[in-house]
Design a protein around this nucleic acid. Structure first.
Lengths: 257, 257
DNA sequence: TGGAGGCATTGACGCAGATCAAAGCGCCGG
DNA sequence: CCGGCGCTTTGATCTGCGTCAATGCCTCCA
């Protein structure tokens, strides 16, 4: 249920980034039930890569050469038309970048751009497909990963279609402050402009909405959020688990026939 | 590349609806490479159902009891909040209704409502999951189905985010008339209000946009569309395969390890 | 044949949110 | 200590599209 970006090793313990492709795969929760030799094989056709903020991981209409596992940092997916970009989704670790395109050998429908800094595990597309078609457990893992992504998208669409800009902001903040006792200040997990695009609005609208939150018991100063009147806030901005709930990977175990 | 709804047996040959669950599975293109006995097993835990227009197939937040295969007709998926509904997607045969929820045993995020009339094959959820976890070929088929759905959703989002209402209408009509020689009148494949919600706008806006099409070489009279000036129309409303292209199921064959 | 209900059209109007523009305000490098 | 750059804030303005309402048109059925 964390709203945090994958990108703070600023204070405290530096995230222990895996040193090798094999380590990265071993550290991926949703590959837990995949056999060692399949992971070995994948790792054998993979490289670990680190990209600075702003890098393009792939471009719209490219044919995938790799299956990209996002290991650290975060990546935004954007629809592009000429000069215009429209934000579609923010991917956080550990997840696959548009597995559908890789599986189907079809062109990417979106541009992927790194925020902050990201570590990617790049597995050769053909080896990835190979593994999916030859190993049932891996196939199930990918299926589960895709299912979670799909549900996240649906939630995003519902959030956009069913709530006003101000409500989206309110619910976001209520959720953000939900895990600490009311009154405790909480940091926004990323730059405001990024939160704004994740919530499907411009920075200006986001900024104004933050101001308006005061009227409902949420105080925002800089990147610090305090829930002054929890009752009021939670009434005005009622969370809906079918929109605001976290969407976790759900394990499916292979069984013999 | 058809825009047609799944719902015209009005003129010509009546669609041959499968008589038994087993027939329905056999007739599903994307299950072609699944072995007979798996299909037999699924059919053994399934019923074929026919629902009149307006029926609710399932309600938001229900836990799936069945995996629903849409065999004929079409079904709309809607996000619901209180009294409001927001259209999310139109499903056409043959496809699964929200497989992610079924796989993960998680509540549906959307309401499913029948348009016109629909035939559904309802497979017991547990048998469906059983088949996915025990049969690799079936697992691959479901993965492919989900991948196609995912890409359709992304295209939809791009269409909405990157084009104005009028452009969406224009592109829709250009695509609709694309398969016949310019000048030939074409029928709209469904009621205007449905096209409008598929294009993410109100009927009124859709209606006005249809009127505006005349300025770009597309004449609309009733439900008949004629492309008068193909060059002008296709320039103003340039199709983008990454938005307007059909998204078909892409087969992945199981291979031994 | 007439009227009721569903859909489409048309016009007037309003508004949420985008856009444009101009300051503030850190933060960093020199 | 200064200047520039990127982010944020704030205000003014614009506009696409939704909403509301009136009307017309079909189809179905009594």
């Amino acid at each position: 249920m964390s709203l945090a970006s994958g990108d703070h090793e600023a204070h405290g313990v530096p995230e222990d980034r895996p040193a090798t492709p094999r380590d990265a795969l071993a550290a991926t929760p949703w590959l837990r039930s995949v056999s060692q030799n399949v992971l070995d094989d994948l790792a054998g056709h993979a490289v670990l890569h680190r990209l600075p903020g702003g890098s393009i991981v792939f471009e719209q209409s490219e044919t995938p050469a790799f299956a990209q596992f996002l290991i650290g940092g975060s990546v935004e997916l954007l629809g592009v038309r000429g000069r215009d970009e429209s934000f579609v989704e923010l991917i956080r670790p550990v997840d696959l970048l548009l597995p559908a395109a890789v599986l189907n050998c079809q062109p990417y429908l979106l541009r992927a751009r790194v925020l902050g800094e990201a570590s990617l595990l790049m597995v050769q597309a053909e080896s990835f497909r190979q593994a999916v078609t030859s190993d049932h457990a891996f196939c199930l893992a990918v299926l589960g990963c895709q299912a979670a992504q799909f549900r996240r998208r649906v939630k995003q669409v519902k959030n956009l279609g069913l709530r006003s800009a101000e409500e989206r902001v309110g619910c976001y903040l209520v959720r953000l402050t939900g895990s600490v006792p009311p009154g405790t200040p909480v940091h926004l997990p990323m730059e405001k402009r990024l939160i704004a695009s994740e919530l499907g609005m411009t920075r200006e609208t986001f900024s104004r909405s933050l101001g308006a939150m005061a009227r409902h018991g949420i105080r925002v100063e800089g990147d610090l959020v305090t829930l002054d009147d929890a009752a009021s806030a939670r009434t005005r901005f009622a969370l809906d688990p079918l929109i605001d709930g976290a969407e976790d990977f759900h394990p499916l175990q292979a069984k013999g026939a």
